[in-house]
Nucleic acid binder design. Sequence first.
DNA 1: AGATTCGGATGGTAAAGCGT
DNA 2: CGCTTTACCATCCGAATCTA
Length: 364
Amino acid sequence: MASEPSKSSATVAQDPQGQPHPIAPYPPQFAGAHYPPLPPGAYPPYYAYAPIPTDGSHDPSAPNGVPPGGPYLMAFPPPPPGMVYAYAPPPGQLPGYPPFAPGLQTPVVLPRPKRKQVKMACTNCASACKRCDDARPCERCQKYGIADSCVDGIRKERKKGIKRGPYKRKNKVSGGEATFSSNQTSESSETTIQPMSYPAPPEGYYPYYYPHPGFVPVTAEGQANGDTPTANGNAHPPVPPHPSFYSMHPAVFPPYPPYAHAGPVAFAPPPMMQLQPPPSTQDQHQHSPSHAKSTEPATNGNVEENGDSSGMSPSKNGKKKRRASKGDENGHPTSSSSKGKKTKNGTSEGVNGTTNGVDGQRPG
DNA sequence: AGATTCGGATGGTAAAGCGT
DNA sequence: CGCTTTACCATCCGAATCTA
Ligand SMILES: [Zn+2]
Ligand SMILES: [Zn+2]
């Protein structure tokens, strides 16, 4: 588990106490992303990976080191000395677990950083719907030996003259910060962004405390899971391997208090874990344009307004349905043929000739 | 297992709308 | 005219599927 496909090699830094910490680099698509400010008194940002599912759905080969749908940035109030956050099986399922820390059952989930896109993908990557980069030839084209055909595509010209109807003014919010529901008492109606309390933890899991990995020695297998609490020399029953929260923020370290058993400890790299669907309160958007990958010139004349505007889509977690069979033509790089097979369907709509947008409405 | 396909989530930003 | 809102359209994630 430990190692990701190939990309990120975790670097190691040290916290104020001199303890080593593995610092995984940001996944490529989040490079340079901005992170929301932390609520007052919140713990430094952590990438949080949900626990490995036990139902066999675990996919250790998630690309970019990012579990499906994640990771999510989370903020927590400071844990007690010697403890870090983690998920654990529900109490009762495993005897000997300490009780929940009061007020911490609902950590705040901050929006995850945005995925970064290149401004212009090469035609090969675009037709394959794969990540491109700014280099020419791009990395992917080089990898597949099609560097010679790695060229920028042509952006369609944007449609003009589309009527939209009156805008609904939004309320300007200043300094949107997430807050902890357990801490927050004032209910400012709508000017403050409500905290998103963690919805249901991944199936069968709860937010939980665990001793800091530095608290206990690493197991022979290198499973630095930091279990087996031994604060007083009295060990709990053995605890199965569990995920902890690993810092992926090179610049921020939590002010860990001294440990009774402090000392150099090796961390196991974050295991790959799948995440449950993001909180529904986070973003609601939808849309369903067809990515018309035709490189057709931008013809403006009359355009069919399309509507869409309804229905939230199942999250990435929901199983996807796929057509039974497929045609032939495809625009894969290796075949170097243009795509342009998916057809868009124009569901016309628009109140008094106003467009309804293929995107429907998105969160602000 | 790796490559390919492709539905649709997500990002970027031009253009429309609107207050001044 | 600058700022906000809307929505066009591109990127590319990731599951489904195909192929070696
Ligand atoms: Zn490319
Ligand atoms: Zn390329």
